[in-house]
């Protein structure tokens, strides 16, 4: 399985001329039980792939919403081991939805790259996005993940020029994550006018599907991205629903899943609306 699950999902979506909706949540936010409830509800809410964050004490690329999600998760004593348990539990009910772990390098280094890669593959993890591990530093991790068939998904940014794209494309698989704004997660809004040519450029350089994230907050924004990219990723706007639900003493999972399905519907209808016009 593993990489194959990502490839199969993008192939199927392409055949339907649909972009993927990728939902990001943080493992253990606000606690393991409720995040399992969210996780297991996401496919029915329309998530085609799931990015599952694992917490780090110093999330340098995150804006306030995901910083707070990490703090809630750490307060609930979430670890990388427990994050893998969550995936294992998810896989007993869902064999088709790819799960990508997203986070920072130090917890992986502590776990040990080989042990992590083996355990992640066994748990049903399909890929990893490690924010602070650029290609120049990635070989030891890439060796371990390759041996277990887990994809190492690379980030590209507005600052990544053509020469550097070749470096980024090396040893990557699954899809490429295009960071649509220079900034932290959930702060600026993506400008679709500049995203469209960037997606074309990244797709040409890597030959892989391109997912766009970091600046998508609304169904409208997600739909706009879905018209030009292979996937739209939403994270901060979803984890903010957790904060809102906690503040209002409302059901956390239902609030997040309602938001997720609105975003998913917008992504899935985006190209239909296009062809209808």
């Amino acid at each position: 399985m593993t990489k194959a699950r990502i490839d199969a999902r993008f192939t199927a979506l392409k055949a339907q001329n649909r972009a993927a909706f990728i939902a990001y949540i943080m493992a253990g936010d606000p606690d393991l039980e409720q995040s399992f409830e969210i996780l297991s509800g996401l496919p029915a809410a329309g998530a085609d792939l799931i990015e599952l964050g694992f917490p780090f004490s110093d999330p340098m690329a995150e804006g306030v919403p995901i910083q707070k999600a990490a703090l809630r998760s750490l307060a609930a004593r979430t670890t990388l081991h427990k994050t893998l348990d969550l995936v294992r539990r998810f896989r007993t009910g869902d064999q088709a939805t790819p799960i990508i772990l997203m986070g920072y390098l130090n917890p992986l280094m502590t776990y040990g790259f080989e042990a992590f890669a083996t355990d992640a593959a066994e748990a049903g993890v399909d890929g990893c996005i490690i924010v602070d591990c650029p290609p120049e530093e990635a070989d030891p991790l890439a060796d371990a993940l390759d041996a277990s068939g887990v994809a190492l998904i690379r980030l590209t940014a507005p600052t990544t020029d053509d020469a550097r794209l070749k470096v980024v494309a090396r040893r990557t698989s699954g899809f490429v994550y295009y960071v649509s704004v220079a900034g932290v997660t959930g702060a600026k809004s993506a400008d679709v006018g500049s995203v469209a040519p960037a997606v074309v450029r990244v797709r040409a350089a890597t030959g892989l599907p391109v997912a766009v994230g970091f600046g998508i907050k609304t169904p409208e924004g997600a739909a706009a991205v879905a018209r030009v990219a292979d996937a739209a990723v939403v994270g901060s706007a979803l984890v903010e629903e957790i904060a809102f639900a906690l503040a209002a003493h409302e059901g956390v999972a239902s609030k997040v899943l309602v938001k997720a399905s609105r975003l998913a519907d917008a992504v899935h209808a985006a190209r239909l609306a296009d062809s209808a016009v």
Partner: peptide, 20 residues
């Protein structure tokens, strides 16, 4: 040339910062 002092150092930053 990779910024290594033996096993230590390096450039572990987000891709957005890497070109900088």
């Amino acid at each position: 040339s990779n910024g290594r002092f033996g096993d230590y150092g390096g450039r572990y930053v987000a891709e957005t910062l890497m070109p900088l």
